[in-house]
Computed example of a mutant assay.
Amino acid sequence: MTKSDITIIAGDFGGVWHEGRRDDIQLALLEDLPFTMAFVDGNHENFDALAKYPVSEWNGGKVQFIRPHVIHLMRGQVFTLEGHTFFTMGGASSHDIEDGILDMDDPNFRGKHIHLLLENQRHFRIRGRSWWPEELPCAEEYAEARRNLDAHGWTVDHIITHSPPTSFAAILNRPKDELTDFLEELRQRASYRRWLFGHCHGDRMLDEKHQLVYRQIVRLI
């Protein structure tokens, strides 16, 4: 492989998290790999840290260059890679927050935190530390996705997302939300060859066009 080869992560990249030297070391290792690494964002990203990177244009869509060959493919974009078109839409609803989301500005934060740990209620997140509301797209990101799809006649070769559409979320025991509903509209309306998504921690071919990926690497081109 060479830097002209592109590997795409279907969300939960996590390489931009701590900010500073700890990220720099890991990102340097990724930059040294013998290929270009691109990713759509998942729900487990530090969106505050990610937002600090400038937005650029690359192969027809908006990106953030984390490193020259580590690239965030932003939401609602259409990219042309080696003559194939790719629609990308990051984001998903966190499913490991049944015990709540804590806010460090809450004067009772410490007590609530200790209580959850003592009660062995570990499915909680902390706002701005391990959970961000930006895990789901905003109205403008949906609008931009629709504009870009309109410009391509809702026809692309490949779709890469983190969340599944609602019909597959139901099969995989994940709840529906506004993003899965948007993706379900995309599934029913768009013309495409393959759709790969992550989020559900498994490797599974759902039908001839839709594939859940986790550890598996799938060659598309």
Rank of each mutant, 00 (worst) to 15 (best):
F168N: 08
N148D: 00
R127C: 03
L149I: 05
I217P: 10
E184I: 09
S163M: 08
L33M: 14
R67V: 03
H158I: 10
G91E: 01
A190T: 02
G90P: 08
H158R: 09
G11H: 11
Q188N: 14
N120K: 15
R21Q: 14
D24C: 11
N173K: 13
P137S: 01
G202L: 11
G198C: 14
S56L: 09
I126F: 04
S163I: 06
G100H: 02
L73P: 03
F124I: 06
P54W: 12
A145H: 00
D177Y: 09
L116S: 00
N148K: 03
P54A: 03
D106K: 06
M74C: 08
D177V: 10
K176D: 15
R189F: 07
F47Y: 07
S56I: 09
K209E: 12
L196D: 10
L206C: 10
I66W: 00
F35D: 02
Q26C: 13
T155F: 00
R110V: 15
D5A: 15
A92F: 02
G60W: 12
R127W: 13
L73N: 02
R219M: 14
H72G: 06
V78P: 09
R204D: 15
P68I: 12
D106C: 03
S93D: 07
T36V: 02
I126S: 01
H18Q: 15
F168M: 13
G91H: 04
L81Q: 05
R215H: 14
W131F: 10
A143I: 02
I9S: 05
M104F: 07
